[in-house]
Simulated assay, not measured.
Amino acid sequence: MAHLDHPSWLEAFLEMLIVEKGLSKNTCDAYAFDIIEASKTLDILQASSCDMLHYVHNLSFEGSLHPRSVARRISALRQVYQFLYQEDYVKINPMADISIPQYAPSIPQVLTMEEMRQLIDTAKQNTSAKGIRMYALLELLYSTGLRISEALSISLVTLNAVLQETQEQAGMLCLRGKGDKERIVFLTQNAQDALILYLSVRSKMPFSKNPYVFPGKSGHWPRQSVGRGLKVLALRSHIDPKRISPHGIRHGFATHLLEQGVDLFSIKSFLGHRDISSTQVYTHVTQRRLSQVLKDYHPLNYINQELH
């Protein structure tokens, strides 16, 4: 994974993340980006503890980055300096006493169940090969809660094997997700039917010789292209396109399961979260919706509205 713009110590660090920690390429690219951005201000191999305190203070209070991005930048620096110190690139670890600031997790914006069904119904009406492809991907995402990168990385061989399984195992899809973690997700019958329909027209798609279920020029269908297609579909469904994204389908899957009474630990398993705290953000979404329902439909609110 050599890169001409990366110094040797950064290459060694990124290789360690892949080999020892099993992190994905996307995660490693994010670490590399944050460290390179920091190196525009700091001399990474010469920075003192005071330099780092000053840098983190400015990063936290200048307001140019979202608090979550600040936390990620500091986490990247903590990890790279731990590596540099252990490998004797630096004599001290200037990040040793600097903690990651806490931030309030952002509450994901999700479509309602009715809007999600409306989106899928609109996609289903387009009987062109590309329309069927979008319909199949939507059913796959909403059936499983997969990350878009996970869905697009499914191979044709894997899907064919899943769809040809016996009744007991039909629809069970085993995959490796974030951090190379293995988990099983389940395709609903609607998703299976949509994917079977799509496979019947897949040969009409560009780059159909590529091994992925959803092929593209450089391998699989690009995420950016999926995002643009979803926004067009949202407009056709009379939904604000700003409220829809590939990852938003995953948020909707989790939120709607929670609203239907599914427990958090089951949802955690479906999503492949390492920690239950990552899943608990969906309780805030549900609480927010319940609060709005109470405001809209509580009988005393109607009385107040009539008095005014």
Rank of each mutant, 00 (worst) to 15 (best):
H3T: 11
H6A: 13
L10P: 06
E11Q: 15
A12N: 14
I18R: 13
E20V: 05
K21D: 04
S24E: 09
S24C: 00
K25V: 15
T27N: 05
Y31M: 03
D34Q: 13
E37F: 05
E37T: 09
A38D: 09
L42F: 12
L42W: 10
A47N: 08
D51R: 05
M52W: 12
L59V: 03
S60M: 11
E62T: 05
S64C: 00
H66S: 12
S69T: 15
A76P: 01
V80E: 09
F83S: 03
L84E: 01
Q86R: 09
D88G: 00
I92A: 10
P94I: 09
P101T: 09
Q102I: 11
P105D: 07
S106G: 10
L111Y: 03
E114D: 15
I120F: 06
A123F: 02
A123Y: 12
A123T: 09
Q125G: 04
K130V: 11
R133P: 06
R133V: 02
R133D: 02
Y135W: 10
A136R: 03
E139H: 04
E139V: 02
T144H: 01
A151L: 03
L152E: 04
S155V: 00
A161T: 10
E165Q: 15
K178W: 04
D180T: 02
R183T: 08
D193G: 01
D193A: 15
I196E: 14
L197R: 15
L199D: 10
V201Y: 15
M205F: 05
K209C: 02
P215T: 05
P222Y: 04
R223V: 14
K231Q: 09
L235G: 07
S237M: 02
H238G: 00
H238R: 08
I239K: 00
P246W: 07
G248F: 11
I249S: 01
R250L: 07
F253L: 00
A254V: 01
T255S: 14
H256N: 08
Q260N: 15
G261A: 04
V262C: 10
L264Q: 08
L264S: 07
S266G: 01
K268W: 07
F270M: 14
H273D: 06
H273F: 02
H284Q: 09
R288E: 14
V293H: 11
K295A: 11
N304P: 00
E306S: 10
